[in-house]
Every structure is written in structure tokens, then in C-alpha cells.
Design a protein around this nucleic acid. Structure first.
Lengths: 204, 204
DNA sequence: ACTGAAATTATTCGATTGACAAGCCAGTGG
DNA sequence: CCACTGGCTTGTCAATCGAATAATTTCAGT
């Protein structure tokens, strides 16, 4: 069955939803779940707070939708770019995967920020995040990590979190980094340097 | 001039202040500045909210006092333990310094959590944190980093944030790590493994 | 053109926030 | 032994929170 062409109404609806979602990702990443108010999110999306309850049932649901969006982007970008490259050497392929992850972390610091925000306490949001998004990714990464970094299975969690931290922290605290070191982590120069540094660190 | 022996009154005062401060560190690390309410902090310290305003002028001041405490502990522990070791080889000394930092990050995940919380937006708390605590430490670490990791000066910020992230993330999101990988990062086994892994990673 | 449903705005609610003021009361100094 | 200071408790304040509901506007289908 053919999906009907969306009416102006439906396009408007989707565009509004998307605008709210975008604002939510930013706000949650900036101020955490509790810190970001639905009113502030609405303000950033140039609407009003009532619309959020209308489009998403609750703040909790809005947060989940925002997290879905981030991981969807991560998966899409990584898959697309790795496919385009077609590297045969597993070590060089692993290095490039890490570089791509660093580039993503630089462009979307929200991912890391939300992970750190929600990973601290074993509440429902954390469990949902692990079960629906983190575990699937982890299980894909883990075997490659063992093979390429030349490490024992027991070291996999250590390598995983070391890589994630090394790759992301600088961009997650970009304003701090800028003030502390004078280096702006958002410049393409800095991103590429970091990508290469971390890739060589983990896959010598 | 001899400092007078503290009266029971003064001892009580100091003990209460300390209890509030301890609770504040935990709460801020767990829920961020905005997420942690002064009432919740008071509850954890087994007192009431009014006392917080009494001992510390405002929530902002309480936060600064909490940050002071964390960095004071970090400085004291690192200085003490490194002095005790007396390593001559600069590379082995650097490795041990990193191991010590990992151990501290494991015992006090608050440091990293608060850094990530406050480093995202260039507000007053971030600026204060950088100027009073981060920069002094960074300027001590930077020269050693260049010498030992064998890197160019331009790479120092990259190495610094890579190390901090690699060392701390696992412990900052300990509940998540436990659920995701099955490994409990708080076990001494895991801490030592991580310390050694990160130390060898950065100083090969 | 009309109508009814959908999208949006406006209003309201009870709960919670940080800050503050007033008073309580144990312990200290005289 | 007593006055009173200082740590502490309680109650209140406006502001803000998430959520629900009411009112209004917009537009697709007839």
C-alpha cells in the first residue's frame, strides 16, 4: 500500500515535533534531565510548554525520544562512513572506526553528556538506556576490540570505557577545555588531531 | 599565638558543617548542581534545609565549598602517595602517577562527575572551577606529560583530556558499567586492572 | 461554505525549589 | 547561677516545576 502524500498539516506537525526534539536533545545535554525544564525546551523550540505534553506524553517520554534520536544518528553516521571506506586491514579499519567515533563525539557531545548524566544512578532511565541502546552497540564493538587491541576478554570493559572517555571528554567539556588550555576543541583541526591521537593510542 | 582549645559548641558546629559538606559532595555528584536540592542535601546530612543557608550563605557557596573539598583531597592524596614511593625513572614515575590518579577517580568519582557537569556551559561556576582548581593542576601536569608521553606541545591538551577521560569514565558511570558489562568497577581488582591498563596506554 | 477533528495556545493546579525571618534553647563566659 | 550568645529549628515567601485542562485557531474532507 502506498503511503499517502503528507498534507501540509502533517508536515507542520512533524516539523514541530522535530523542533521540540532538537531543543530537548540540546537542553538535556546541557543541563541534565532534572535541570532542563519543559518550559525551557519549549522556549528553545519557539513554542509553548503545553505542546510538549501534547506531542510527547511526559517529560520522561520526551527524554527517551531524544535519546533514541541521538543513537539513531550515531548508528547511521558510523555505518554510512565505514561502508564508504572499505578498508581491508583490520587494524587500520579499527583505527578508522575510532576516528569516526571521535568525529561523532565532537559533532554531538550530547551523547557522552547524557551517558554520564544517566549512568551514575541505577534508575529506570539508566536501565532503559543500557538495555535498548548501549548493550547492542557494546556487543558489536567488543569482539573487534579484543582482536585488534590485542587484549584479553577480561580487559574489554576497561578498553571500552577508556576509549569512550578518551574520545569524548574533551568535546563534552569544550567550553572548559577552551578556557583551560586555549584550544578550541570544536575546530576541525583539533577534532582531526584528537581523532588521530586516540586512534593511535588504542591501536598502536 | 596558641589557638584556643575548641569548645564543645565549636566542635559540634564544625562536625555539622562537615556532615553537610559531605552530603553536598555526594548529592552534587549524583544529580548535578540544579538537580540536587538543598532540602535533599539536608536530609542526607540528617538536618534541615535552614541550616544550609546558615552555615553556607547560598547553594552556590555550598557548591564551591564542596568543590574545594574534592580538589583538596585529590591534591593531598596524590602528593602523599607519590612522595612515599620515590621513583627515579621518570617514565615509571609517570605511570605510577597515572595509576594513583585512576585510584583516586575510582574512590572519588565525584571529581569527574562535577567536572563534566560544570564544563559544558561557560557560566560562572565553570570559570571559577577552571581558574581556581583546574589550571593550577594542569600547569603542573603539562610539562611532565610532554616529556614522558613523548608528544609535541600542541598535543598536550589532547593527551590531558584523553587521560582524564580514559581514567575516570568507568568509575563515574559505575552503575551503568556494571549493568552493561557485568564488571563492578568498584572492586579493587577492577580498579587495579584499570589503573595498569590506562598507565600503559599513555606511557608505553 | 461548513464542520469537526487536530494542532496550538492559554490557564490553572499542586508540588517543590532556594532564600529568608523569627524564635528556640543548650552551652558558654562572667 | 544567670544572662545571653550562637547554633539550630520551624514556618513562610515568591518563583518555578511538570502536568492537566480549557479555550482557541487552523485546516482537511465533504
Amino acid at each position: 500500500m502506498a503511503t499517502k502524500a503528507p498534507t501540509a498539516r502533517e508536515r507542520q506537525r512533524e516539523e514541530t515535533r522535530e523542533r521540540i526534539l532538537e531543543a530537548a536533545v540540546e537542553a538535556f545535554a546541557e543541563m541534565g534531565f532534572r535541570g532542563a525544564s519543559t518550559r525551557e525546551i519549549a522556549r528553545r523550540a519557539s513554542t509553548n510548554q503545553g505542546l510538549i505534553t501534547y506531542h510527547f506524553r511526559s517529560k520522561e517520554d520526551l527524554w527517551r525520544a531524544a535519546a533514541d534520536g541521538i543513537f539513531e544518528r550515531l548508528g547511521a553516521q558510523l555505518a554510512e562512513r565505514m561502508e564508504a571506506l572499505d578498508l581491508t586491514d583490520p587494524r587500520e579499519r579499527a583505527r578508522e572506526a575510532i576516528r569516526q567515533y571521535v568525529r561523532f563525539a565532537a559533532a554531538h557531545p550530547e551523547l557522552f553528556r547524557i551517558m554520564v548524566d544517566e549512568g551514575r544512578v541505577a534508575d529506570d532511565r539508566m536501565k532503559w538506556l543500557v538495555d535498548t541502546h548501549l548493550r547492542p552497540r557494546f556487543e558489536v564493538i567488543a569482539p573487534g576490540l579484543m582482536e585488534v587491541a590485542g587484549i584479553d576478554e577480561a580487559l574489554v570493559p576497561h578498553a571500552f570505557y577508556a576509549m569512550a572517555g578518551a574520545a569524548s571528554l574533551m568535546f563534552a567539556v569544550a567550553p572548559e577545555c577552551r578556557r583551560l588550555t586555549g584550544l578550541d576543541p570544536r575546530s576541525t583541526q583539533a577534532v582531526e588531531t584528537h581523532a588521530d591521537y586516540v586512534a593511535r593510542l588504542l591501536v598502536p
